[in-house]
Design a protein around this nucleic acid. Structure first.
Lengths: 235, 235
DNA sequence: GTATGTTTCAAACGAGTGTTCGAGTCGTGG
DNA sequence: CCACGACTCGAACACTCGTTTGAAACATAC
């Protein structure tokens, strides 16, 4: 009677990926697009179920609640990305340990940009939706989701921060965290297309082509990360 | 019977600042905090008026609707910032024209960062609220507000983009727009405290001190802006 | 004083929300 | 064939939402 197939509440294993029934998948797909477009609060279950072609009660049957649905929508995309990021970082650190290449900030950045790029170009795994979802999560406050994230994926951030610290030995720990924060921000909001110029209707930039984004963003981020340590604050 | 003191719909003069009655101000103040904290959709008029200590119907009396209230909340902060940005840019271009200093990317960045910093440290003008509001507007889609912005403040972006283009002569027009986009993104989301690390509960960074933000962010942005033109896309 | 225009207030309206319930349908295993 | 679980469906529940209304309170001017 109560499927709640979400692996989140069930197992301890962090990175398992639950299978969803066809109805549940249809709901997830519809909800994903609508959450991205309208935001969580402005998206009603009736709109979701209507667009998914399923009954209204199906949401509360397959997922527990609207909040749990949102969490499931997000984690369905976030899980694969996190897994791939760790895989990339593992591979990088292995190559570095074998002295095959130096540990540069650029390599660290690409370890999390490349998976995001791959996902952005793969419609079967959500395409660009995932990053736009993430940028919404950053701005909105989803307490429950935030707890789940920090519980399941906290080590991911720790590992990347440590790697970046080793790649930028001249910086204090605080400076590394700051640049980590700034670098991640740029990536997510660039991918998500949260373009200030767009707000003013003055953007001629085709900010939606993932390859274009990476081409312009990675040098920008790397330059920021590798800039000399902050000396004085004002001019 | 119908005050609607908003200068937006009335005059053509772009940068005038309407005066609000005490009740209207109380509503604006309460709404500002709640919009930032909960988002526009999740904030109810009842919550706003309760926190402001005014009657529910006052919102629809002093402002036309909830949407119009949101627009007023935003423009009340955005107007002064835009005005100061243009003043800074005017001053910079005057000094450059007089050969008193060269036109650098850093100077351009500081022309819009300094006003944001000043506002962030002045509670009377909203403090850090304004930037957090802006970062929400970037992610959420407020069609009407977007139209107002592009109508009233489009020239601001155009002028800054042109200035940045002159400061970075080696870049194509497209590259300038991209970096403008990235640089603005970093500033707003850094000021707003949209910290990815925070989502994971792993942030030791005190990302709320405006001076600290500027100290770390400006070098990061300047380094990104002044990095050599993008050569090839992949490693 | 009355008259006039502005601002507040309590109450209600209709629409839309997430969620629940119980009957109904379907498909498989005994 | 029948029973049992998984799943779907329509209807309803109890709220909350933004907005409107009409009367009261207030200020100002004549």
């Amino acid at each position: 009677m109560d499927p709640i197939p979400s692996s989140v509440s069930a197992g301890e294993g962090a990175h398992s990926e639950p299978k969803y029934s066809e109805t549940a998948t249809r709901i997830l797909d519809a909800a994903e697009g609508l959450f991205v477009e309208l935001g969580m609060e402005a998206t009603s279950l009736r709109l979701i179920t209507q667009q998914a072609g399923v009954n209204l009660a199906a949401v509360n049957y397959h997922f527990r609640s609207k909040d749990a649905l949102f969490e499931a929508v997000f984690l369905r995309r976030f899980g694969p990305w996190a897994t791939e990021c760790l895989r990339e970082l593992d591979a990088l650190e292995r190559r570095v340990a074998a002295d095959e290449e130096p540990l540069t900030a650029e390599a660290v950045v690409k370890s999390y940009v490349r998976p995001a790029l791959a996902l952005s170009k793969d419609p079967a795994r959500g395409g660009v939706m995932f990053v736009r979802l993430f940028s919404r999560v950053l701005v909105e406050n989803h307490r429950q989701l935030r707890e789940t994230m920090s519980r399941q994926y906290g080590d991911l951030v720790t590992r990347f921060t440590r790697a970046l610290g080793r790649a930028l030995p001249g910086l204090t720990e605080q400076e590394v965290e700051w640049r980590m924060h700034l670098g991640f921000s740029v990536m997510f909001h660039a991918f998500a297309g949260n373009d200030i110029l767009k707000v003013f209707g003055r953007s001629a930039v085709s900010a939606r082509d993932p390859d274009m984004i990476v081409k312009h963003m990675v040098p920008f981020v790397v330059a920021g990360l590798t800039s000399p340590p902050a000396g004085r604050s004002d001019r």
